[in-house]
Simulated assay, not measured.
Amino acid sequence: MTTEQWGLITTEQAEQVGVEAASLDALAQSGVLTVAGAGVFQLAGAPLTPHLDIKVAWLQLEPGTPAWQRLTGNSGVISHSSACRLHGLGDLPVGTVEMFADASLTAEAGVRVHQEPGLDPSQITVVDGLPVTTAERTITDLLHAGLDGGHVGGVVADAARIGLVDLRTVAQQVAGFASAYGLPASASGHDLLSHLLADAGEPDPVPVGD
């Protein structure tokens, strides 16, 4: 199981295959396992996995279900600043892990769960074995959350540079946020993206005619 989820296993997953929590603790004390987070263990000597905090937080949200069974549905979709980290976008502060999840799921400390009852499958992609909001959806979520323009502009610029978004499409999707960022109500999505990119000190590659 651990080979298919970054060398990690939860207490609940281990119990399902007959390994009790006390045995996991003993394996950790002997150095066979290391504690990656509350109720999550990692094989000692396993290759370092990037974004370990995100993966641990995601496993903790539904610890009895293997990672490969959670790539669809409402059992946790990495979002907002954490989605930016996985996509390699922008320079947002690292700290709280953010994700969309069903209201019935309980997150550990340091995790912010956003409620989204109707997240469309087309707005979800898989990055390093994790379900993650697409770059386009992530930009919209950051604007909805009111993140400052400079940080959002950096995300937009990086997403365009590496080909994760079509700026004409993004401009159509974000026009409704223009007034929240100090632009006139008549401002277009193109105007907003230009404003965000300027705040980030980035050139404006947004196509005219959004």
Rank of each mutant, 00 (worst) to 15 (best):
V17F: 12
V126W: 01
Q123N: 10
D25Q: 15
D25Y: 15
E62V: 14
W58I: 03
A21L: 11
M99C: 10
A109N: 14
T134C: 09
A107C: 06
L92H: 03
L48I: 10
T11M: 12
P203E: 11
G209N: 09
I139K: 00
G150C: 10
A107F: 01
G146F: 11
A160Y: 07
G182I: 11
A187T: 04
V19G: 07
I54S: 05
K55R: 13
T134F: 01
Q172N: 08
V170W: 03
V40C: 01
G150E: 08
L71I: 12
T106H: 14
I9W: 02
W58F: 04
M99W: 07
M1G: 10
S30E: 11
Q42D: 05
L71Q: 06
S23M: 07
A67N: 02
S23D: 15
D191S: 12
G182A: 09
A185E: 15
A187R: 09
F100A: 10
V208P: 05
Q60R: 10
E12G: 00
V155A: 05
V127P: 00
L86I: 09
S23V: 14
G76V: 02
T65K: 11
D191I: 05
I139M: 09
D204K: 05
L52R: 04
R112G: 06
A187S: 15
I54L: 06
D158Q: 01
L167N: 01
H51E: 09
G163E: 08
G146H: 14
I162C: 12
A159H: 06
T96A: 09
D210G: 13
L24C: 11
A14H: 03
R85C: 01
V111S: 01
G118C: 06
S104R: 15
R161W: 04
A67G: 02
L167D: 00
H144F: 11
L71Y: 04
V165A: 00
D158N: 04
A171N: 00
L164G: 08
Q173T: 09
G182T: 03
A185D: 14
L143P: 01
T72L: 13
F100S: 11
V155Y: 03
D25C: 13
V165N: 02
E98G: 02
P131G: 05
A198H: 04
G118N: 15
D102I: 03
E12C: 08
W68Y: 15
G153D: 09
P50T: 08
L86N: 01
Y181G: 04
G18Q: 10
G146C: 08
D204F: 03
M99K: 07
V77L: 06
E202M: 15
S82A: 10
H51I: 13
G73D: 07
A36F: 14
V126F: 02
I9T: 14
F41A: 03
H87P: 03
L105P: 06
T11I: 13
D25P: 06
L143N: 02
P50G: 14
L167F: 00
A101S: 12
E4M: 14
L143E: 01
L61Q: 02
F41K: 04
V111E: 00
G176M: 09
D199F: 09
A14M: 05
M1Q: 06
S179M: 13
